[in-house]
Structures are given as structure tokens and as C-alpha cells.
Design a protein around this nucleic acid. Structure first.
Lengths: 195, 195
DNA sequence: TTCGCTCTAGAGCGGCTACTCTAGCAAAAT
DNA sequence: ATTTTGCTAGAGTAGCCGCTCTAGAGCGAA
């Protein structure tokens, strides 16, 4: 009996669907993107689409889960060579780098529109709390060694940093102007720098 | 000939539809809210709904236009008694106050999901540039009198402030904890305070 | 009253959507 | 060679959606 025919091909197809869906969600939003349109863009039939994903929502969840895993890796990679303020700024730099993707801003908006669906909310909360823990950990460290302002608690500063980064992500346009390359990092530094 | 039968009643009905739509958009998002559901919630028929608004999208635009006008009034009211940093912080306080509305955060998400529809984008850009101009004006003033940090241009600081406020708005939950009352103001103050 | 108009209700409709079903093909296992 | 199974295509379907249409009630003007 023919079990898993070609694992490589399977993974590639799956990823192709995810990628095309990402693009279209970013351009038109989740609800306004039809499964038929994703199929057209990916050059497959609806039969194939629903063979790889049981429902449209699972495609979005798949994209977000991949993003979560990527974030996890990025944070642990940062922690192998940085702690305290440099670690926080390194993460901010990573967000800034993501923003140069021309579809990033659109996708952020698309996700915001369906953030209250439980399956979406779960993944996003996981990612948010992961980042939050990272920030609190390193801001506490930074505070202890007086790298940052001491007139606000690390928990507050972590929250404010997340606000700033989320707001910046929402405004991402994908235009990589040379001076804007470190705007986000500069903003975070300004927010955290001691008075 | 019977022209406008009852202007009061007309305005009240219209506002009732807007209010119910605002509530439902905040809870379920724009695309996932049906006109039938709005009608049910407002206690009217679809005939009435489409008598007051030519299309569903016009309800959203109506809500956003009302918000734009409200923002305009708020900003000019602030400018009658404040300039410079106090004016900026007064605006931040206004945003913080808005966030106590239990539906505010949900509505922000709902709008983000359809921000790329041209009619929506127009209103939002109008509001964003209005706020931007206000911030640049008063941050320039504040910078001149050394109320704020001088290591970043007023234009940059205005952008960062908008990022911060937008990010905060996105995280609004409607819970009015006493200590969170001035968190947004504190964050803006931290961002702008001289190093 | 009798027009003329606004406002309201609600049945109805065309169109689109997510998803299903069936049939066939390719290839691995027997 | 035959069977089994993964994979793919694409027609088909039930249901929902935004919106229209019609009929009439309410009200002001002549």
C-alpha cells in the first residue's frame, strides 16, 4: 500500500498554499480572500486545497503557527549572545527587519480583523506572552544594571515596548528607506533610556 | 409636499443604527457582522436599514466620520488651553479615556481588518494626518522650549507617539483599572522625556 | 379629501462562499 | 498484474449575504 508517497512534495505544496494565502490575506484581508482565489493563485484545485487543510481558517492558523515558531527561534538565538537592553534592542531590530516585507503590514491588519476568533486568539496570545516574558526578563536585568530608566517598572516598560512595536508593525508599508532601517530600534531606545 | 417629516426622529434612528453597528463590529468584526444582524439588534427591518444607508460600508464610514469630527473637536478644544508637551499629553489622556469603552478595542481591530478599502482608508488617513499635524506642531514647540528630548526630531517623535498610541488602542480591553488610568500618558511622557 | 412624499416592513433574489463528492490517475506493495 | 492508497481535479451543493422591490402606513400641503 502507498503510504506517504513523497514527503518533500507534500511539504512543498503545503507551504506553497500557506505562502499564497499569506500574500492574498495581506492584500485583501482574511474574509475578503476566497479559497477559490487562493487556489487560482497557487495553481491548484479546491480538492487539493481541502486535502491539505480541513478548513480555510486552518490556513491562517498555519501561517500564524509558523510565525510563532519563528519568533521562538529568534528569541532564543538572541539570548545566546545578548542579555538586558541589547537583547531587547536586538528583538526590536528583528521586528524592524520583518517590516521590510512588502506584505507584512497588510497581513498584520488582516490578522487584526479576525483576532477574536478563538483559534486565532490562542496562537496570538501564545506569541504575545512569549514576547512579554522575554521583555520582562531582559528589562528586569537591564534595570538592575541601570541600563534603562528606573522610574517605571520592567512590567510597565515591557507593556509599553509591546505597544510601540505593535503600533509600528501596523504602520509598516514595506518601503525600505535607508534612514528608517533603525527607526523602530531608535524609538524603543528612546522609550527605555534613563531620564 | 412632505419634505423632511421629522428631522429629530430621522437623526435618532440613524444614530441608533450607527451605535448598534459599532457594537456588533466591535464584537464580531466588520465582515462577520451581517446587515440582518444589525437590523435585528436595532429593531428595524432591512428596508429601513437601506433607507438610511445606501450600503453596509456606508455605516462603517459613518461611524469613522463621526469619530474624525470628534477628534477634530477634541484637538481644537485642547489647543484653547494648552500648547507644547501639555497639549500632547492631554491628547494622550483623551485616547486613554476612549480606551475605557468596552467596545473600543474590538472596534479598532474590526477597522484594521478593512483598512485597505478605499473609502475607509480615506477617512483614516484624514484622521491620522490631522493628529500627526497636531503632534508635530506641539512637539516642535515643546522641543523649542526644551520640554522634551532633543536627540530626535519632532517629526520622528510624532511618529513614535502615534505608534505608541495605536499600539495601546489595539490592546484596549475596556477594563478600567484605577492604576491603568494614566498608563498611556505615562508611556508617552517616558517616550518624550529628555534623557 | 386628495395628492405627494417619506418612512417602514418584509418577502424575495442573484450571486458568492466554504466545502463536499466522485471519479480517475500515479505509484507503491503484493 | 492487481490491488491499495495518496493525491488531484473539478463539478456540484446548501446556505448565507447584501441588496432590491413592492405594498402600504403616516403625515404635511393644497
Amino acid at each position: 500500500m502507498g503510504r506517504i508517497v513523497d514527503e518533500r512534495r507534500h511539504a512543498e505544496r503545503r507551504e506553497a498554499i500557506l505562502h499564497e494565502a499569506y500574500r492574498q490575506f495581506a492584500v485583501a484581508g482574511y474574509d475578503r480572500t476566497s479559497t477559490a482565489s487562493i487556489c487560482r493563485g497557487a495553481g491548484i484545485s479546491s480538492g487539493t486545497f481541502f486535502h491539505y487543510f480541513p478548513a480555510k481558517l486552518d490556513v491562517l492558523v498555519g501561517i500564524l503557527s509558523a510565525g510563532l515558531q519563528q519568533t521562538r527561534q529568534a528569541l532564543s538565538r538572541i539570548e545566546t549572545h545578548s542579555i538586558g537592553l541589547p537583547a531587547v534592542l536586538a528583538y526590536a531590530g528583528g521586528v524592524q527587519a520583518e517590516m521590510s516585507d512588502p506584505h507584512f503590514g497588510g497581513f498584520v491588519h488582516a490578522v487584526a480583523g479576525v483576532e477574536l476568533l478563538p483559534e486565532v486568539a490562542t496562537v496570538l496570545e501564545d506569541e504575545a506572552s512569549l514576547i512579554r516574558a522575554f521583555l520582562v526578563r531582559h528589562l528586569s536585568d537591564a534595570s538592575a544594571r541601570s541600563e534603562i530608566r528606573g522610574d517605571a517598572s520592567p512590567v510597565h516598560l515591557a507593556m509599553w515596548t509591546q505597544w510601540l512595536l505593535d503600533g509600528a508593525a501596523q504602520h509598516a508599508t514595506g518601503t525600505t528607506s535607508p534612514s528608517a532601517e533603525d527607526d523602530v530600534v531608535a524609538a524603543v531606545r528612546a522609550l527605555l533610556s534613563p531620564p
